[in-house]
């Protein structure tokens, strides 16, 4: 979208020269009054309780560079630099917990602070004020838009990155004692991850010669038909390898949902919590261990 934005000229212009001339005048005014306008803006930011996660000094430093980039974008009408700056800014402030509404909020505040200063400057020349605003408003709105989009894109990138990181964290198949594995599942299960989990578990059963597996789903956020079917498949596949599966951490809400959508829980050996599951697993194993020990 940036290319088209850069190429287009504010539609309000009647004569080609005028808007950019007006913008130049505008920019000069904003440069001249930089210290005062920036101060006003910072005060409004703290009044509006935006950027609360940042210190006063940080806000001031950030405000200075945003102000300068803002004026520069007005001057050059080139938004690439601003876009890059917005991404860079987002990269720094997203980890601090700054929210989308705050970023949009401060940019809109700056737009308003500057507009007010234009009102003050041209209050005696209403026609000129109108022409100045005609030049200023579309550019200002585009700047707000660019910063907001940049921030959201960066946020999405961070989220995607985190999702990948989580996915790559292989869910551990833990051996708690001989022949007993625990598979704690945390987060969202999609078909790809479900398959990975199942394959990992089946290999684990074989390598550890496990007889009992406790799958703990306390950390599973949501369960729908697809996920439930994956779980049933995992249980069935484990049994084909001779291992008994105990599912723990199935909340009453999820159990209710599963029953409602017709998932057969009868095939699943469920126990309330992980501890209960391990106890039952040990009972199953204890019985077997005792009798297996006899022939020796």
């Amino acid at each position: 979208m940036s290319k088209r934005d850069v190429a287009s000229v504010p539609p309000e212009s009647k004569r080609n020269e005028e808007p950019s001339e007006l913008l130049r005048e505008l920019v000069a005014h904003l440069r001249q009054n930089r210290t005062q306008l920036r101060e006003e803006w910072v005060v409004r930011i703290s009044e509006t309780r935006l950027l609360t996660a940042m210190t006063k000094e940080e806000i001031f430093a950030e405000a200075t560079s945003v102000y300068d980039s803002y004026v520069e974008a007005l001057e050059t009408e080139a938004f690439e630099a601003l876009q890059a700056y917005a991404r860079n800014l987002s990269e720094r402030i997203i980890p601090r917990g700054v929210e989308t509404h705050e970023v949009v909020g401060i940019v809109l505040l700056l737009r308003d602070v500057l507009a007010r200063s234009l009102f003050a400057k041209y209050q005696n020349d209403f026609k000129k004020l109108n022409r100045i605003l005609d030049a200023y408003e579309p550019a200002a709105n585009r700047i707000a838009n660019t910063v907001a989009v940049g921030f959201v894109q960066e946020r999405e990138r961070v989220i995607r990155q985190q999702q990948e990181a989580i996915r790559e964290l292989s869910t551990p198949v833990l051996q708690v004692r001989e022949r007993l594995l625990i598979l704690p599942i945390i987060g969202v299960i999609d078909p790809q991850r479900a398959r990975q989990l199942t394959e990992q578990l089946l290999r684990g059963i074989r390598t550890n010669r496990a007889k009992v597996v406790v799958i703990d789903i306390t950390g599973v956020a949501a369960m729908d038909v697809t996920v439930a079917n994956h779980l049933v498949q995992t249980v069935e596949a484990s049994r084909l390898l001779g291992a008994t599966v105990i599912v723990t951490g199935l909340s009453p809400e999820i159990a209710q949902t599963l029953v409602t959508i017709g998932v057969d829980l009868g095939k699943m050996n469920t126990v309330g919590d992980l501890q209960g599951g391990i106890e039952q697993a040990e009972r199953l194993l204890g019985y077997k261990v005792a009798t297996l020990a006899e022939p020796r």
Partner: peptide
Amino acid sequence: PEVAFAMVQLGLTLEGVATAL
């Protein structure tokens, strides 16, 4: 393990038959 995975995809679970590793 891989065969077991393919079997459950096909819905073949050998229900009612004992299995061991």
